[in-house]
């Protein structure tokens, strides 16, 4: 098992409470339909890796881990595993949020549309998280990235509205597949770039 995974989970447990809570609360407040929570979870989930890289740098943990003989690749892998765990938790909570909204507003809930949204959200979330990790390791000031994320989300949803976005994708499986593959490809690229950055930078 990855040597740093325990640390990643243990030092971020607060976020594992705060994030789900914010997803639930946001979903209920916005009441923009039962599919929004999934999208929101994708954006919010990316905030965790971003802040964890930032905190590790500031506290000197990264320097400590590297100095203590932990391979740099292990450090990056642990962060990506954290991303996966975070994504899973956030999407699961989003599902709860969706159910809550259905309960409260009694709106329609199509399994097909939900699945579509989940798949898109997960792929998008993974890409955003990877970007957060890459930016976090390469540059300072990841907080800016997080702000951009949240703003980007608000703007996207406001401009298009969830139903319209869904409509575009549910019409074409091919479009959905293409977008998801693209997201995942960028994620893979970002993983490689992050590895390269971490391997060549000082701590």
């Amino acid at each position: 098992m990855n040597r740093l995974l325990k640390k990643e989970i243990a030092s971020n447990t607060i976020m594992f409470v705060a994030l789900p809570l914010s997803i639930l609360i946001y979903s209920v407040i916005m009441q923009s339909g039962p599919y929004l929570p999934f999208m929101f979870a994708a954006f919010m989930g990316a905030a965790l890796p971003a802040s964890s890289v930032d905190m590790d740098d500031k506290s000197g943990w990264s320097r400590f881990a590297v100095s203590s003989g932990i391979p740099r690749k292990t450090m990056v892998d642990a962060k990506f595993m954290l991303t996966l765990v975070t994504m899973s938790v956030c999407q699961a909570v989003a599902f709860l949020g969706a159910m809550l909204i259905v309960l409260i507003t009694g709106c329609e809930f199509s399994i097909d549309d939900a699945l579509l949204t989940i798949v898109l959200s997960v792929c998008l979330g993974l890409m955003l998280s990877s970007a957060a990790l890459y930016i976090g390791y390469r540059f300072k000031g990841v907080a800016i990235f997080v702000v951009i994320l949240i703003l980007g989300f608000i703007v996207t949803v406001m401009l298009f509205g969830m139903q319209r976005i869904l409509g575009i994708f549910s019409d074409s499986i091919a479009a959905t597949a293409a977008v998801c593959v693209a997201f995942l490809a960028v994620t893979a690229l970002l993983y490689i770039l992050t590895l390269r950055t971490v391997r060549t930078r000082d701590f």
């Binding site: 040597r3 607060i14 000197g60």
Partner: peptide
């Protein structure tokens, strides 16, 4: 090094857990 790099919210028992996994 000069700053203490350990996660701020942790107590000894959790630190033990992390380090036994790391080293």
């Amino acid at each position: 090094f000069d700053e203490c790099p350990f996660p701020q919210e942790m107590r000894a028992r959790q630190l033990s857990s992390i380090f036994s996994s790391m080293f």
